[in-house]
Each structure stands twice: as C-alpha cells, then as structure tokens.
Design a protein around this nucleic acid. Structure first.
Lengths: 151, 151
DNA sequence: ATTATTCCTATCTGGCCGGTCGGAATTACG
DNA sequence: CGTAATTCCGACCGGCCAGATAGGAATAAT
C-alpha cells in the first residue's frame, strides 16, 4: 500500500509553494528544481492542482503558480485527494461511498471490512489534522536544530 | 493507495480459518470457496502465511490448513505484513527502517516526510489494535442483527 | 493402488504508473 | 510591434508488476 509518485510529487510541490507563499507567482521550473520533480511531469500534476482550485496560475512572462490560500488553511488531505482520489485502502471502503452499494463478493458479509474502515479512518485523521503551514514550520524548526538555517 | 489483492485475499482467508478454528485442518478448496478467492491463487498466498508461521498445514488426504494460534492472539497487522510487507505509505518511512539511511532526493530535508510518518502510524495503529478474534466476533454480531444468524 | 490433498516454481498477460514530447495560447518587456 | 518567458493541452509510450494460471511432484489416508 504505497502512495504513488503523483501524491508524493504533488505534496512536495505544494510544500515548495507554501514556502514561497506571498512572493508572487513562482514559475514551474523553480518549483520543479526545489521539489526535485521532472518539470514535464510536474506540469501535468500541477494542472490538476490548479483545476481543483488549490493553486492559481498566471500565464505569460513572469507568470507562474501560487497557493490560492494561505498554507495554514490548506489541509494536506486536500492535496492528497486531488492527486490520489478519495482515501480508500480498499474499494469497498472508499470515502465518498454511496452506503447502499455493497459490491463485496462475500457470502455473508465481509468481516475484514471492519479493519479497512479503521485503516481508512486512521489515514484520514493523519491527513486532515495537518496543514501545509504545519509542514513548513516543522521543517524550518528541524533546519535550525541541524544548523542548516545558519549561514 | 490501495491494499493489493494479496492483502485482501490473505485477510479473508485468515478470517475464514479463524471461523473454523478448532475443527481440525481445513482443505484449501473450502477456504477458497468461503473467502471467494481463486483456489490456485490462494494456494500461493497461503504458502506465504504458512512460511511465516501463521498457519499450520497437514499434508495428504484429510489434510488442510489451520491457524497456528487462537484467533484472539493474531493481530491483523501480522497478517497484513506477511502479505504486503512492512507498513510504508512511502519508501522513506518504512516500518523496519534503518534510521541512518535517508534516500530522500530533496535538498534540505523533506517536509512532507512528517505527513507520511503520521499516515504510517495511523495505519499501524489500526492494524495492530485488532485481532482476527475481534473480526469474527463483530461479524457474528451483525449477522444476528440482520437476521442471517437465525434459521 | 487410488484418491485427496499440500507443495513448488515457471509462465503469462493486461493495465497503468510514470514519464516525454510538441506545439498552441498568453502575457511582459524593450 | 516582435521576441522571450511562460502556462496550457493532449497525445503518446515503454516497462514493470499485480494477479493470476498451469503442471507436476511429494505426502498421507483408506
């Protein structure tokens, strides 16, 4: 059960944008470098984030991307869902589920479903209790400790 | 981020075995039917579970498989790990990690790592706080309520 | 013997992840 | 203006691996 590179890269890109929040549009090339994502691929991913309304874009020279909201107002769960779809360790426990549909092939109900629901809820909790703001802040703190922040 | 069919099927098979615990060896064909898993495939999977020591096997006619421990003593996390490997939503946060190795390509440490660790811990908690015993018990209870248990 | 079963390992196949490419549209700037 | 910097869009594609299947050898009951 791994997060795909879409999720990984998307998250990294958003953190980069969070770090540069308030300094105007950041060109794709910069984000790509800063987040170590192949530019051509990132373009695809960031398009998704834009369509989802998480980032704004400015076209033309001096254009680029920026967060549409302050980092503290963006839950990482939002980013995750845009990139990876609804949280669902298993098809039968997807977040946005119609309660009526039960496509489990099991004879008398599936006992394992209970576990997957717990797992899903664990993931959701982890994702929705953190914001991009938390991430950059935490990271800066650890930079300080390791001395990287002092030059 | 989905659990593969190995995890799904493996868990189902183990629940079947948990239900039949104490009634002697259960042939593969039975488990396959009961858990709706292709027999040939299940054979492969249950082999893993056996090698991991979670099930015992008896060969020859009247042979089959059975749990090596009581259902209440088997955490679903154990089953999960046998089928899916260490819990790791992301390579850089795998459970059985050597703390020294850090293969993150990021320049100044990866801020996103914090999320993935939280996610991982959420999953681990969900998996390790439940036993096979819990599952069959819970399921029987819901059977009662829906009337399936009454004949 | 014959039958029921586990055990082993080789092989196959489709889907999709992860990525590239080319070019069109848009805007700043001198 | 024209040119350079940028976003935007959709088509393409190769490789890997999940998800099986197949066949046969070993083992044990009857």
């Amino acid at each position: 059960m791994k997060v795909s590179t879409r999720g990984e890269y998307g998250m990294r890109a958003m953190v980069s944008l969070a770090r540069l929040y308030g300094e105007g549009p950041v060109p794709l090339s910069t984000i790509a470098t800063e987040s170590s994502v192949p530019p051509a691929y990132l373009e695809q991913l960031i398009g998704q984030l834009r369509r989802a309304g998480l980032v704004n874009s400015t076209r033309g020279a001096n254009g680029g991307y920026e967060l549409s909201r302050a980092p503290e107002d963006v839950r990482v769960g939002e980013v995750y869902r845009v990139m990876e779809g609804p949280v669902a360790p298993m098809v039968c426990v997807t977040e946005d589920m119609d309660p009526s549909e039960d496509l489990c092939p099991m004879i008398d109900g599936c006992a394992t479903r209970l576990v997957w629901i717990k797992v899903r809820d664990g993931i959701v909790e982890a994702l929705d209790s953190t914001t991009l703001g938390d991430l950059v802040q935490q990271n800066r703190k650890s930079d300080m400790l390791s001395g990287t922040g002092v030059s």
